[in-house]
Design a protein around this nucleic acid. Sequence first.
RNA 1: GGCGCCGUGGCCGAGUGGUUAGGCAGAGGCCUGCAAAGCCUCGUACAGCGGUUCGAAUCCGCUCGGCGCCUCCA
Length: 423
Amino acid sequence: MRLSDTLTRGPAELPDPPGPMRIYSCGPTVYQRIHVGNAVPFVFAMWLRRWLQRTGYEVQLAINITDINDKIYEAAPGASAELARNATEWYLEDTSGLGLGRPDFEPRATETVPEQIAMIEQLIEAGFAYEVDGDVYYRVSRFAEYGRLSGQRPDKVEEQEPNPRKEDARDFALWKANKPGEDTWWDSPWGHGRPGWHIECSAMSEKHLGIEFEVHGGGLDLVFPHHENELAQSRALGHRFAKIWMHNGMLRLGDAEMHKSLGNVVTLQNALATWGRETLLLFYATGHWRKPLDFTDETLASAAARAEGFRDVFRSPSQPAPEGSWERFAAALDDDFNTPEALAVAHEWRDHALLRRALEIFGLESLGELPEAPPEVVELARERARARAERRFDDADELRRGIEQAGWIVRDSDAEFQLVPRS
RNA sequence: GGCGCCGUGGCCGAGUGGUUAGGCAGAGGCCUGCAAAGCCUCGUACAGCGGUUCGAAUCCGCUCGGCGCCUCCA
């Protein structure tokens, strides 16, 4: 199997035969309900885990929860800890609603502060960081490879708000001294304060996966500065860190990228309630993970129709698929996890067992679990069958209307009838 | 200004040198009391202009258009 790698800007071959596969994916900052775009890296990480496990890898997946951040202070002055706790619960609820299970590790920044402090101390000792008035900054000029991941040229990176305490405008904060109004802080060798955003991820990933692991993922918008800085922190300490970097394309709402700061946001909770998890998951699989994807009524309606199409396969008799069908499906996923291609293959199948096996990868085997109509609806359908047999078609049509009012559609076949929920 | 991505039929979306992608929507047909589902048939697309090649959606160049990042953002 191979995956596109941001660092080398090309395909990276995964070890063959399969071995350990440690994956770290950047999770949300918890200060409000996550939106459908935030869910993309979660969904792809969970799918990738299933596929890798299926093909024999020993997967360990960590998705962090960033519960220390400026955003949280800003969103809940004086009650940031409470907001972070609540928003963590929302995140767990909403992502569980996707029905894909949980990652192996879900570290929180607040639970990893000692590890972060230890890492910062090591960076200072090694000359890669310096303290100024309770802040600690990373010394970018010391790290020759800075900019390699993102392709940014350090000399071209412009600072937005000049910070006179930094030696160099490119330096970034590892530790921030407590400021008035910030109601959560930790003790450190540099006084009260809290860790910077980037060090959290270096510490959390290495705590659970080790100083060297296979895959690091997240949204494309994290390449710079977040991941560039993580890489700089960890490699400065001689850690190999992630071997492959996966960055998913951004979800777009209408013609604008979905952004909390733009307010054009559909929460995951909302999308799940409106479309259901099966349609939403199928929507995510519509496009290749590296490319942008448009969240529109049209694309979601199309996904809903595809879901119904798969259900119809399970409502019809199973027919064996041609030799090599699974191999074609597997080849698509092995080639940079190409879900649109894999789904195209699966759409050709009428083989229940095979299709269910494929849908399991996406957590969509539930499409094969067809609901049974309540007895009173079945009774109406039986009456209608009798009416039809006696050629009382007006009565039959009347009964069909009754069945539809109860939320079901009746389909006739040679000997039997079939009841399908109205969607 | 710097770094990078993308432009495929009505819509979504695979496909990186030569052979049918697939889905959604649509048209016609078979089937049906009428439907639904299913099945069959139908679209000959690749932003534009050059170039390389026996041959290009696929490689190269330019142009046009859209988009992301550049220390808040998955």
